[in-house]
Design a binder for these strands. Structure first.
Lengths: 380, 380
DNA sequence: CAGTTTAGTCAGGAGTCTTGCCTAAAGACT
DNA sequence: AGTCTTTAGGCAAGACTCCTGACTAAACTG
């Protein structure tokens, strides 16, 4: 049965949920405001607020209304409601943030990690950052949302290396690392997936339910958004396109990652793309650069064609250090326009999209956690 | 706000929903049974059943319990609750069925249509079948679920022809045709999508949330199931793989449908595959047949590799007149095993899967319709 | 034929939401 | 300065829903 059993308890918890959601959306409100906003009667809100305040979930902020009429008491979420940890792990380093239920940045910690940093060092940096943030936040860190620049196993949250694909961060198990520091859930996903969510939330794909986000940077990735959500697949490896067969420089089929190898654009001793080298050979107006751009654009279009056939997106978004380059995007557009089933191509807009996406989700999960706690909390 | 406003009405409608769901699942039950099954108290169920019976949604079946104890009254959905139309439209003809809220087949109508049948004839056959079934069903046809052997536009429900892809049924707009005959929703989807849902419901993919169903018959299609649901994409054209680039007979890349053209396996004056010819050249133990099987299997594997990269399925299901052939499946398995990211391949199990899938959905939608009506019905 | 079992039914009570009204207190108006 | 208006807070009564617990009716059991 998908629907809960009818009971007066259920009714009351629905009321409480409405009150909490109203406060999460608007920061501080008087009880009369909440009643007007939710459409629930004043006495009911009055009771609910009293319940939640007694349970310690809400608190009188001490502020009072000014203006005509009787003075109103402002209420808001209790200051010790805690925060969510948001972290992005990439070869550029570790960024850790604490976000509250309003989605506001409460604290931030940055750690630069060399490209040669060991897994051990990355793990320690993450644990240290989480510990530092936790100490700063009244209610502690209740949940965590992690973005990693590598494929993430959906079941375990562990970073996984796929054969021959770029592996930028290395073997890491954020769930295990954070387990002693975070009371609740630890959510891990690929940076490209977070970026896609960010573009859908406040970038170039707002309100678009079906699109594909292609990340072309040091790594190669793709997020498939279908019916408004990123679809991760069974193991969480949906969109790992490095091995997808596409058109190579001479027109024969080869895996996408091999195209870069053939062109000598992969970093030494690694399967990561050498972005500086790539930029060097593709920028400029000379014919050689244009030819290289075309070769790369054709390879990318092979991926786009497959994505269109299998996912039928309304839009293709391209991001990443070299993918979002105007000349590159333009070449991809030209090539893609020749495909019998092409769709518009947009450039990713959001700054630090992997963090933006993870932040939004963190606030969301934190809100759910607060509501769940409130529900079970005053059941006693 | 996703959650409904708290009110005593809401509570009551939840109770009614529980009662209805229990009866939909079990056909006939006494009020005491319903109470035990739902966990709701006897007096509450007693009230709810009275309400729903007065509204005409439920009825005393006239049957009584036998055995120890006081005689119980069996209740069930009212006999005039109506049915759902389920129809499958393919070059083989039209099958129309009426299904009740228990998922039982109530009536069936078959119309053979020649391959050369005009759209006009198909449309008339559909309207006639719907009319005939409607006259037989006490409560009429409340909703319709249609399976079509062509791509379906998700927004309009209209069949669409993609350039160069097989177009088996032809331009048809089932929603418009059925509009005067069906009070409620008319749901149209591709036969491959329905088949995938059927395999997930009661076939080889039970309980599997992420898989890909590849249909290899006269047409070429693919359904992508992600997080437990078929993902149709923006226009409903997700999985239209005829134009996906894959390996051709000589190893160069070409669209999947071209592979068949190259091998002379497409029907005259059409882009549909000539299944008889295909079977003729691929069956048998001789080396030529084995070679052709291998060529086709490689082409299919190109599609599978793309699907794995983009959708990360747990399983690949292969169905269709020639795809599900044991020798063919075996060859595909062998070829696919060479891919660095292969997944298990299963053979489709369900008979007439497009109908089975549509039937299940029809029963589901009919149930929802009944619950919605009951909710708004006695609000008066 | 008394005892057991079971569905149906009733009464009372607890809890939730709503309407309507009153009160308090601040600003606006005369 | 005094009265009016506006607005949040607070209270009482009433309608309604669900539940517990007990009772009744009617069948089978031994």
């Amino acid at each position: 049965m998908p629907v809960e059993k009818p009971s007066l308890d259920l009714l009351r918890s629905i009321t409480d949920e409405h009150v909490l959601r109203a406060l999460m959306e608007h920061g501080r409100l008087t009880r009369a405001d909440i009643a007007a906003r939710t459409g629930i009667s004043k006495p009911t809100i009055y009771d609910s607020v009293r319940r939640l305040a007694e349970a310690g979930v809400l608190a009188d902020t001490g502020e009072r209304t000014t203006g005509r009429g009787r003075v109103g008491f402002y209420y808001s979420l209790a200051p010790d409601t805690g925060a969510a940890l948001v972290a992005s792990i990439s070869p550029r380093g570790l960024v850790a943030e604490a976000v509250n239920a309003f989605g506001e940045l409460v604290a931030r910690e940055e750690t630069v990690l060399g490209r040669s940093a060991s897994q051990e060092e990355v793990a320690q940096a993450l644990a240290r950052a989480a510990g530092t943030l936790r100490a700063h936040i009244p209610g502690g860190l209740r949940i965590a949302v992690i973005s990693a620049a590598d494929p993430v196993d959906r079941g375990t949250g562990r970073l996984v290396q796929l054969p021959d694909a770029p592996f930028l961060v290395g073997d890491l198990h954020p769930v295990a690392i954070l387990e002693p520091l975070i009371a609740g859930q630890v959510l891990v996903d690929n940076d490209v997936n977070w970026a896609a969510r960010a573009e859908r939330g406040s970038g170039c794909a707002v309100g678009i339910d079906d699109f594909v986000y292609v990340h072309l940077g040091e790594g190669l990735g793709c997020a498939v958004v279908n019916d408004g959500r990123v679809r991760r697949g069974h193991r969480g490896l949906a969109g790992e396109i490095a091995h997808l067969h596409t058109a190579g420089p001479d027109g024969t089929a080869m895996p996408l990652t091999e195209v870069f190898a053939t062109l000598g654009l992969r970093r030494q001793e690694s399967t990561a793309i050498d972005v500086e080298a790539l930029r060097a050979v593709t920028s400029g107006a000379d014919e050689a650069a244009a030819r290289t751009r075309t070769i790369l654009a054709r390879a990318v279009c092979g991926v786009l064609a497959a994505a269109v056939a299998l996912a039928d997106p309304q839009l293709v978004v391209i991001g990443g250090t070299w993918g979002a380059d105007p000349a590159m995007i333009e070449t991809i557009r030209e090539q893609f326009a020749r495909s019998p089933r092409h769709v518009p191509i947009a450039t990713a807009l959001v700054q630090a999209p992997e963090l933006a996406g993870a932040r939004a989700r963190a606030a969301d999960e934190l809100r759910s956690a607060i509501i769940t706690t409130a529900r079970s909390g005053h059941a006693r």
